[in-house]
């Protein structure tokens, strides 16, 4: 600390440097994108194969594995929250975007169950997957997520032109584009996170 040499120019440089340190801090390691991306990819392809081969009476039971992932995610989030040393405004917004997504998924499943409109389920899921993915990309300024979100919406429209069962394959493709590829890119970016720039 040498206040005597601390000019207004130094002050502005320091402010700029510190704001960039906080701004460039990348807390998203992509883990949950990868967990859900791979799980839904596995479930959708598994469901499609079981359906086509007519191996079981209710191939949709494969989706029950998502409940295990929900339990795992809750434990993971509780553990990581304890280790957090900083809370940012953007992380807060992203958390609420995904909470809203979870609630919408639940309500939509409930509505579809009541109205017996399961033939539209994959189109609607694809549309819903696109929204939080695109919004997270906007908040994080992370292009792969924005692109992934747009791909989900495109696939949602395409899904209306094909037989409902092939929607499962579109779901698998959406997972690769929206969560798996961005998940690995997020992990890479996280590992390259900035270090302190200078000694004060």
């Amino acid at each position: 600390m040498q206040p005597e040499n601390f000019s207004p120019k130094d002050s502005l440089q320091l402010i700029d440097q510190m704001i960039n340190q906080a701004k460039n801090r990348f807390s998203e390691n992509g883990f949950l994108y990868l967990l859900w991306g791979w799980l839904i990819l596995f479930c959708s392809i598994g469901h499609f194969v079981l359906l086509k081969l007519k191996l079981v009476a209710h191939p949709e039971v494969i989706w029950a594995s998502c409940w295990l992932a929900v339990i795992f995610q809750v434990i993971y989030l509780v553990k990581t929250k304890k280790k957090e040393t900083v809370k940012t405004y953007s992380e807060n917004i992203i958390n609420y975007i995904w909470i809203s997504f979870g609630i919408c998924m639940f309500i939509m499943s409930f509505i579809l169950g009541k109205s017996e409109g399961w033939d539209k389920v994959y189109s609607l899921f694809l549309m819903l997957y696109g929204t939080p993915t695109f919004m997270s990309g906007i908040v994080m300024q992370f292009k792969p997520l924005k692109t992934g979100g747009i791909i989900c919406w495109g696939l949602a429209i395409i899904s209306t032109f094909i037989l409902p069962e092939y929607g499962l394959l579109l779901l698998a493709a959406a997972m690769v584009a929206a969560w798996i590829v961005p998940g690995y890119l997020l992990r890479k970016k996280y590992n390259q996170q900035n270090k302190p720039l200078q000694n004060l």
């Binding site: 600390m1 040498q2 002050s11 320091l14 402010i15 704001i19 906080a22 957090e84 809370k87």
Partner: peptide, 21 residues
């Protein structure tokens, strides 16, 4: 107008809250 205090304030301006570490 002190390096460390200004650095701390610049960091805290950018985030919701931060731990000492």
């Amino acid at each position: 107008h002190s390096q460390l205090r200004l650095a701390v304030m610049s960091l805290l301006i950018s985030v919701r809250e931060a731990e000492f570490t």
